[in-house]
């Protein structure tokens, strides 16, 4: 009989162990959106910079324009045949499916906002979630007398040579710039792993 008592303990432990795993499985909810691209691949894509499309190439029938501005801005004026999905709404409702459908039809979704930078948020989030057929339209939008004006936009254009400007201004006044005091560069101490005391086993 003593043997049987021991068995009870064993079976209780075993049942509990299985129960915990089953409960875990039952309550497990697969997250709705999963990344399929990791950060390194995303960075590679960013550097490759092949995800831009110029304004004069949007007449192609294989593209779908998506306006990521707010519905309010969209109402004020938008490009022809554009669909409005504002950035905060990207992952809500049927919107992800829409992108899937665009992919299934072998079309390319072109995102645009009032600047390419605005579209970039949506682009990067979507790309990391595995929607690869998306591009950013190089456009900047402006209004003139309530009419939408589209301009070609060049990203990250270096407009002026700031050094030259400063030198120019100094030449005008004919002063010799004082040698600038260099503030020593900040050095961020590398975080050392805290050395933990080695604990003994039993």
């Amino acid at each position: 009989m003593k043997e049987l008592e021991k068995t009870k303990r064993i079976s209780i432990a075993a049942v509990l162990f299985i129960l915990i795993i089953i409960i875990g499985l039952l309550f497990y909810e697969r997250p709705k959106h999963l990344y399929t691209v990791n950060s390194n691949d995303m960075l590679e894509k960013v550097i490759k910079a092949d995800y831009f499309i110029a304004l004069d190439k949007i007449d192609d029938p294989s593209i779908v324009l998506i306006d990521i501005r707010s519905p309010f801005e969209f109402e004020k004026g938008h490009l022809n045949e554009a669909i409005n999905i504002s950035t905060p709404e990207l992952l809500k409702g049927d919107n992800p499916e829409l992108f899937n459908k665009i992919a299934a039809n072998k079309k390319v979704a072109i995102l645009y906002g009032s600047t390419p930078t605005e579209a970039n948020n949506a682009f990067m989030v979507l790309y990391q979630l595995g929607f690869e057929n998306i591009k950013i339209l190089l456009v900047s939008l402006a209004y003139e007398q309530n009419k939408l004006i589209t301009n070609n936009s060049i990203i990250e254009k270096n407009v002026t040579d700031i050094n030259a400007f400063i030198a120019e201004s100094q030449k005008k006044v004919k002063i010799v710039p004082k040698p600038k005091k260099r503030i020593p560069k900040k050095v961020v101490p590398k975080k050392k792993k805290k050395k933990m005391p080695v604990e003994g086993g039993c």
Partner: peptide, 8 residues
């Protein structure tokens, strides 16, 4: 147990 919890 840890691997299951990690998986889930």
């Amino acid at each position: 147990g840890i691997l299951y919890m990690d998986y889930l």
